[in-house]
Write a protein that binds this DNA or RNA. Structure first.
Lengths: 110, 110
DNA sequence: GTAATCTACAACCAAACGGTTGTAGGTCAC
DNA sequence: GTGACCTACAACCGTTTGGTTGTAGATTAC
């Protein structure tokens, strides 16, 4: 499961791949049509899609001779939840600090 | 700015680094005390901390001869917001699909 | 002042990344 | 069936990553 998270974050750690996800999440796009937007070879874009696919951030669907790339919302949601968990931990810590301050202040006054 | 996001996601794409952030977000820890938890050299952990530092996910604070590592909540929140944005885009798409289905179904019945 | 502790950083190495070109297999149009 | 198009994948290459060991600089304890 840690490997799964590794793959998700690694996949998102590249601007080209994030842009592919952005495009693919609203509509399916062929690999060729995706490749037209970037200043690199078709094969390079194909590799990026493969990385996204292994991270389950994207699926491919045959459409005639094309392969439609589509964003996988469940996985993106999973990653967002993970990060929110980190925020949650922090929020509890901040709350805890507030409690400590609230307890200490009166004692200093006595 | 894209580089900043690259660095954040890349930093989180490693289980050891995620664990360091987890520990450091609630309390400051010296690099040595962090290193005790992992099956690798001190220098390796030090490098991981450096990656987190460059991604602004963590700050170091001198405390005598130790260096306290502490999680940066603002950056974590930033990453969470980014992922939520992706989810948001999806939600709109899902809503759109629902609308299409809602429009189509009656027509099929008539 | 000396020894122990904590950190920083350089040098090295194998493996993974991110790109390239080239070749080959399906699918569509005609 | 031929040609054009879309995709898959192998081979290659320079750079980065993630680990190691070793050395050196501060800081603390005594």
């Amino acid at each position: 499961m840690n490997d799964e998270i590794d793959r998700i974050f690694h996949a998102l750690a590249d601007a080209t791949r994030r842009d592919i996800v952005r495009r693919a999440i609203t509509d399916g796009h062929s690999v060729t049509s995706l490749a037209e937007h970037y200043d690199m070879s078709f094969a390079a874009v194909q590799k990026h899609v493969q990385v996204l696919e292994r991270a389950l951030l994207v699926t491919k669907e045959r459409r005639g001779r094309e392969q439609l790339v589509r964003g996988r919302v469940d996985t993106i949601g999973r990653a967002a939840t993970l990060l929110q968990a980190y925020e949650q931990i922090w929020a509890q810590r901040a709350l805890h600090i507030d409690e400590i301050l609230a307890e200490d202040t009166p004692k200093e006054q006595s």
